[in-house]
Amino acid sequence: MKKTSADVLPVEGVYGDEPLLAVDDLHVEFRTRAGIVRAVNGVSYTVNPGETLAVLGESGSGKSVTAQAIMGILDMPPAHIPHGEIRFKGTDLLKLSEEARTQVRGQRIAMIFQDALSALNPVFTVGWQISEMFRVHRGMSKADAMKKAVELMDRVRIPAARQRVNDYPHQFSGGMRQRIMIAMSIALDPEVLIADEPTTALDVTVQAQIMDLLADLQRESQMGLILITHDLGVVADVADKIAVMYAGRIVERASVHDIYRAPAHPYTKGLLESIPRVDLKGQDLYAIKGLPPNLLELPTGCAFHPRCPYRQDNCVTDVPPLYQISGTRGSACHYWREVLDGER
């Protein structure tokens, strides 16, 4: 008999108070010839069924590496996870055997990638690629699996799905390709879906359609969604809560409502102020000054201090913990009160 993930992971409801997925003090480093790249330095976040967590942060802040660590698709080496836990329903995935891990990947936790053209295999039809999930993981016959693929393509609203199952990825538009990625990822009803910048490669109107689709699918299936993006505009409509990352750390954690009303970290504030706004047309955008930190040699103290308008002496020496502001809200800034109050 084929072993299923139920053998190694708790079934529905047995995980008690644990969140559906909890990343806990995760550290990831890449041991390269140039030195140790500390890409993730103690990230913690959680996501629950039906909940959407948006992970924000500029390029290189470690959003994707964290996601890949959850999926277990980092190349190790060069990647190492010296510390941390990734608990799925209370079970630490990092302690599972590779075999057990493979049973989680794609079936219980799935992922969609930024550029669907390069993320899909060019030499197989989209139907083949979607139905592979059913053939490999569910042992279905080719014909049955193909039927399932058509159903899924219908579900992600690809027009004329039946006629198009035997087409190749390059024969689809960008938006349709991303729908195919989505169909493939939700094939086996995963409990957690990680979407790594799913709309970045698409034009604006298509972006909105894809986000709507993801939101609808999530409502139907109650999966936990981790949405990685650097587009704050996208986040407001779909996310429940936000984790802002900087230099491999969470610098602010809050509900969408709170963060838009009043950010509690200077970096978040900078991000929010760089969203183009119609009412401020013509004015200078607040772009965060300076460059992202060198991960080979992180700044001492708060990693954001070289770029921070609120910097004081202790920022250079003391690493700020994630101060609890209220309930689940937190900010990794010594001066979060000043930031919250909008003083500059």
Partner: peptide
């Protein structure tokens, strides 16, 4: 290639990722 990462993320065995997804492309 990116599509190899996708294949791995689908929960396929290493054997299948290399033997099916990579090989067909590498043979060209």
């Amino acid at each position: 290639a990116d599509f190899i990462r996708t294949a791995t993320a689908k929960g396929l065995s290493r054997r299948r990722v290399v033997g099916r997804h990579a090989l067909r492309n590498a043979l060209i």
